[in-house]
Amino acid sequence: MIDLVGYGAFFLTIALSYAIIAVGLNVQWGQTGLFNVGVAGFVAVGAYVSAILTTPDAAGRLGGFGLPIVVGWIAAGIAGAILSYGLGWLTIRLRSDYLAITTFGFAVTVQLAALNLEWITGGPFGMGFIPRPFAVSADDPFRFGLLNLGLTAAVLLAAYLVVEHLSASPWGRVLRAIREDETAAVSLGKNASGFRLQAFAVGGALMALGGAVQAHFIGFIAPENYLPLMTFQVWAMLIVGGSGNHRGAIVGAVLVWAIWAASASVIGTVLPAGEQARGASLQIVLIGVALCAILLLRPKGILGEKRVVSRYLGKSAAEPARQREGTLAP
């Protein structure tokens, strides 16, 4: 029984740290329509920044600052915000999918830097001894698990309240207006690019914070934790939950992580040791197909958001937007 609760707490802590990342992605995509394909890069930046600032001295790499965990988390968030603002600034004037390509390149480069800048990141062996919250009670796994779950849930709740507050504020209303009808928002004197950049930075900060929380809970990070697969998982969480809605993002994170963990354990028990790598690739195929199927069959997700500003305008509002985007007519 204790074991089950312990595993449940571990599972939920990881799932909720993904939920923080998914809420960050939702601020970017769900609220403003900015497409980030480099989620793993921002998560990695957060994890590494916080780990470098808080770990004890290690031979052969930068570090030994031994700062408190909370300082690491705040620094992670700031780093994520600055980097996403910079990338956004580079591409915001251009077509929306240029941002996608640039963030994709960013994630590839971050992973490469984590692998090769050994004097900063520890290279392929990663970084260990990242201080874990509540480490004093680490010899009581039950208590330790629940305390960490509580902390991660508290961070998620704080992030959720902040973004909900932002969404409800005039700032959030402008963002939704831009998402649904940019021309109308601009004609009312709103600087669309400026608002989008701010939202992109808030989202990047949350992703980096989520990465830092995850890194401190596990206590160890390595470059291969931050492959494009992670970006894809977070996207799956957002799409399953229904983009635009922060509660949907959280539900999606727990649900997708549960499916992921369950299918991994099925593969672990059913397949012989030699076939597990193949089983893992089949798992990815199925998740990829499932994502496409959800996009095709239920594009609004489980808790999809309704259009707010232009719901009275009906279909006529969607038509000019389509022409502007330049999609081929059927």
């Binding site: 497409f35 996608a100 690739s281 496409c292 996009l295 389509r322 999609t327």
Partner: peptide, 28 residues
């Protein structure tokens, strides 16, 4: 997606999912 006039970005996400599925199928 073209038929229902989805936003460009939905196609990009779908291509991202297709990429992962196609690659992992080869690996499998």
């Amino acid at each position: 997606f073209r038929r229902r006039g989805s936003a460009t970005i939905i196609m990009v996400i779908a291509s991202f999912g297709a990429s992962l599925a196609l690659r992992s199928l080869l690996e499998f």
